[in-house]
Design a protein around this nucleic acid. Structure first.
Length: 426
DNA sequence: TCTGGGGTCCTAGGACCC
DNA sequence: TCTGGGGTCCTAGGACCC
């Protein structure tokens, strides 16, 4: 009996300029117009419509640097609105799950689909069906790349984004060298800035060259990740689809300030507020944290002499999801690293060593802990029912919204009744 | 004036053990 | 003077992703 390797067929569905497309859903007049979406605090450009890309606006550029082009060309600008993007993303993913049983949600705007059971001659038309359904049911345009491995499907998707059809299928193409030759080394999934530099120095400039290099050479000169990428370019699948949602291992909440902060009390309020958000997040996922890290820093773009960055990690005696305990430790940690006289730009906390609370039993569980548990439950429920921060801790301050720039908010939130658009009837 | 936020995995090196 | 060999576990930092 011989083993016949099962050929995989993997599609990567990627929403086009996702955040921009979400904003466009409620503003049809900005269709076909240049649009950008800014990061928190209106700092950087994190989503661009194709019309904005043509103008030379780069991904990740600070807003103030691109401002001239933006004003000159009448580019529409939006502050980011994550509750809207999260909601639209869930709708897109639900449709994908409905169409394909095995999918891996890879990011807010991307998913891998397992199309292995679909015959080769029907793959492309199935892709079209996926694309049409998402567009019709949500209004979000997508691009789809299909190939034998995740890395190749990423490449197919990269090409699809530039084509009108929006679909590129590499399944059944005998020799893809001609295609890979046109893919720059730094456009390959898993090859970042550092590795690109390394390859280019050696004259390896495109995906075809990386594909045809000997695996031994890579193993000796690089690491397992690089050899995996090369294998995947050859059509040998090394990176499996993760169709079940693994529990996360860390939970980070951090923010920059709109204006630099010297005052300890304001830092403390932001750290407390981040801690509360993180605690709520892990409770909603039934997780317990073993440790918390608190970090603060001044701006990276200022004089190095006045730069200060520090962090403190504190282990909890028993893994916890208790907001009160988490905030108390966060504030203790902050006190230990705070230095007077610096203009702080950012604070954050990381909960780590996350465990599944359903699988964790505490030997010393007391009635006091049960009471805290039910307190946390009612806080979460109240905040869910009546809006975030209806119930909070005094440590987090009463006016948290100050000191965050969101000048260009579209004020649309599909998950909040107060933000429903108003239709006037004459 | 103004430069995001949230993740994962791998690796090298130290601590520790017998 | 001469100071083994082999293993595990943990952690910090780097690289990558969106």
């Amino acid at each position: 009996m011989s083993y016949i390797p099962h050929t995989k067929k993997i599609a990567l569905v990627d929403c086009n300029s996702f955040y921009v497309s979400c904003e466009r859903l409620f503003k049809p007049h900005i269709l076909k117009k240049p649009v950008v979406v800014l990061s928190n605090n209106d700092g950087c450009i994190i989503s661009r419509s194709s019309e904005a890309k043509v103008l030379g606006i780069k991904m990740g550029d600070p807003y103030f640097k691109a401002k001239e082009i933006i004003i000159k060309n009448g580019v529409y600008v939006f502050s980011s609105n994550y509750s809207l993007y999260g909601d639209i993303s869930r709708r897109v993913m639900r449709i994908l799950k409905y169409l394909v049983p095995n999918i891996e949600i890879y990011s807010i705007d991307e998913a891998f689909l397992d199309l292995s059971s679909i015959p080769n001659n029907m793959i492309s038309s199935f892709g079209e069906k996926v694309r049409d359904t998402i567009l019709q049911w949500t209004g979000i345009p997508t691009s789809i790349g299909i190939a034998k491995t995740k890395t190749l499907s990423k490449i197919a998707n990269h090409i699809a984004k530039k084509q009108k059809s929006g679909i590129v299928n590499l399944i059944g193409i005998e020799n893809i060298d001609l295609i890979l030759e046109k893919i720059k080394i730094n456009d390959i999934w898993g090859v970042g800035r550092q590795t690109s530099k390394f390859y280019i120095k050696l004259g390896i400039n495109n995906a075809k060259q990386l594909k045809n290099i000997s695996n031994n050479w890579i193993k000796n000169n690089s690491n397992v990740l690089a050899s995996r990428t090369a294998m995947e370019l050859r059509g040998i699948s090394c990176i499996d689809l993760e169709t079940y949602q693994a529990k996360r291992k860390t939970c980070c909440v951090s923010r920059s300030f709109g204006e630099k902060v010297e005052n300890f009390q304001i830092l403390a309020e932001s750290v407390a507020s981040h801690s509360l958000n993180a605690a709520e997040k892990i409770r909603s996922e039934s997780l317990l944290a073993k440790a918390i890290t608190i970090f603060i820093r001044t701006s990276l773009f200022q004089n190095k002499k006045i730069f200060y960055s520090n962090s403190k990690t504190i282990d909890f005696p028993i893994a916890t999801d208790n907001s009160i305990e988490i905030v108390k430790n966060a504030l203790g940690g902050l006190k230990s690293i705070f230095k007077k006289g610096y203009k702080y730009q950012k604070t954050g906390i990381i909960l780590s060593g996350l465990l599944d609370s359903k699988k964790t039993h505490n030997l010393f569980s007391s009635s006091k802990e049960k009471r805290i548990k039910s307190l946390m439950k009612s806080i979460d429920y109240t905040n869910y029912r009546y809006g975030r921060s209806t119930l909070s801790l005094a440590d987090a301050g009463l006016n948290k919204k100050r000191n965050i720039r969101r000048k260009y908010s579209s004020k649309i939130d599909t998950a909040n009744f107060d933000c429903l658009p108003i239709v006037k009837v004459n």
